[in-house]
Design a protein around this nucleic acid. Structure first.
Lengths: 119, 119
DNA sequence: TCTATATTTCGAATATATACGAACTATGGC
DNA sequence: GCCATAGTTCGTATATATTCGAAATATAGA
């Protein structure tokens, strides 16, 4: 039986080193200042708030009419701040908050932000 | 009896329109994104953390060896985000967190940030 | 009034962030 | 294989932040 080739072109789409997979930092490596910076933008606060309500969503579902490249940028910032995990579901990228992990790292922070963002 | 002159050169040093007095926004006018941005800088996180422990301090006491103009800038950002109140005490400026007000505006936020910054 | 001290303001350099079109890449379905 | 779709990456323009020296301002005290 042939071994599965995991490399540049033949890879496991769910593995962390897949071409399509994203960098999700270990939650312990996320710095507080970076998390706060990620949350300090109205567009990203909106995305985070909607993800908290809906659980999961594609990028397009949360674009608010903005160009794809802008939305992609904001998702990247959220990912790198440990706030969002993105997984490939066919042609769509599904995003969800890393709530348990983030809460473990910064207890109460996300709750306080989400409470504040909704008035 | 002469009325007290409140103007460009003869003014009440405790009044909000004094030359030396600072702009402290009404807490209800502080936007979440601006508060988070103010907290998303390591220098300012350090200042806020020290103020939380010490209660009150002059600018110089918290400068961490940085030039005065830089420290002054960071205090201004904290002031405009509703986090810090500065009052004139003779030649020094005494700074304190607007804790009660800020907590009322964004419940749990400052606690979560302060808990996270210490570790 | 002169001096020392604490801090702000100004100005300019540099760094970082945001925005968005165009080109590119991965996936699923035909 | 070809096409459409969903996102990413790239390049660049612009906006905002940070830094710090120098000059200005306020206050206390001699």
């Amino acid at each position: 039986m042939e071994p599965v080739v995991i490399g540049k072109f033949h890879h496991d789409p769910d593995s962390e080193d897949s071409l399509r997979a994203f960098k999700h930092p270990p939650i312990e490596e996320v710095a507080l200042a970076d998390a706060l910076h990620a949350l300090s933008d109205p567009v990203r606060l909106d995305i985070v708030s909607k993800l908290a309500m809906d659980g999961e969503a594609s990028c397009a579902a949360l674009d608010g009419g903005r160009p794809k490249s802008s939305v992609s940028h904001h998702f990247r910032v959220l990912r790198e701040a440990g706030l969002v995990r993105t997984r490939n579901e066919g042609v769509v990228h599904m995003n969800a908050l890393r709530r348990e992990e983030f809460d473990r790292r910064f207890p109460g922070l996300l709750n306080a932000v989400l409470a504040a963002v909704n008035r």
